[in-house]
Write a protein that binds this DNA or RNA. Structure first.
Length: 258
DNA sequence: ATGGTCGTTGGACGA
């Protein structure tokens, strides 16, 4: 069984103990982290290695930052930290191969507000991601694309779709970009097992949003057909969101019978 | 009870 997970930790420095405890309990083989907000020279490698994880990471000061933790035997190879043909100081991409498995961790831009400069950056970024993955999927039969997509794909992924209509994270152009990724042959693991609304992965820190389950499902695990065929579970673990000093995101985990 | 927090940083920005 292969277990993979994604978690936007909103500062790895603050959340390190939660990551260690959650990993000890849930034992993911591969864990994608976003918003580490940690420069590579400050990455807590020793603590993670002591917990049995290899790590690759691509960080920067203050913002963004991605990492992959692995307790697989095979060493990570073919590591990529950028979208091809896209010069960007923002550390949002980390891809690595583990044996025959391609693992692509993304922290998609938030987009700020529909129509803003940051929104245009988000859509352009997603287009570059799409073009790259089209090629990656030709090279790798078993591919996982996971992370914080900052897109709630459908109305059932939003606590109040009417109030959110047209806003950033749910707008038609963002949802279209998400569908374009799906059209490459990438399948949303969570929706293989659950049809109902009310399942979220992010809740705003403000206004007691978590207590009221005012959330959005914006963290996703998408997989190629070969992995879809052997995917046996996918769940969002709300437990860490209820801890003291939580990340505003919950981890999402999927299992594969391989 | 109709609700404005975090993290990084050292004032304001990003989410």
């Amino acid at each position: 069984m292969l277990r993979v997970a994604t978690w936007n930790v909103n500062s790895l420095k603050v959340r390190l103990q939660q990551v260690l405890e959650w990993s000890a309990t849930n034992k993911p083989d591969l864990l994608a982290l976003q918003e580490t907000k940690t420069m590579d020279e400050n990455f807590p490698l020793a603590e993670l290695e002591a917990a049995g994880y290899q790590a690759v990471f691509s960080g920067q000061k203050t913002y963004n930052g991605v990492a992959i933790l692995s307790r697989l035997e095979s060493r990570p190879s073919h590591i990529e930290t950028d979208l091809p043909f896209f010069q960007d100081p923002q550390r949002r991409v980390l891809a690595a191969s583990f044996g025959g498995l391609r693992f692509v961790n993304v922290y998609v831009p938030n987009g700020s507000d529909v129509g803003s400069e940051k929104f245009a950056y988000k859509l352009g970024w997603l287009e570059k991601l799409h073009d790259w993955l089209k090629k990656e999927l030709l090279r790798y039969e078993k591919l996982v694309l996971l992370g914080d997509f900052n897109i709630a794909p459908e109305d059932r992924d939003v606590y109040d779709a009417e109030a959110w209509q047209g806003s950033v994270l749910v707008s038609p152009s963002e949802r279209n970009a998400f569908r374009e990724l799906q059209k490459l042959g990438l399948y949303d693991c969570f929706r293989l097992f659950e049809d109902k609304p009310g399942n979220f992965s992010w809740w705003d820190y403000r206004a007691a949003a978590f207590r009221r389950n005012h959330g959005l499902r914006i963290d996703h695990i998408l997989v190629s057909q070969a992995l879809r065929d052997v995917c046996v579970s996918c769940r969002i673990d709300k437990q860490p969101r209820g801890l003291e000093r939580p990340s505003d995101h919950a981890p999402v985990m999927a299992e594969f019978a391989i």
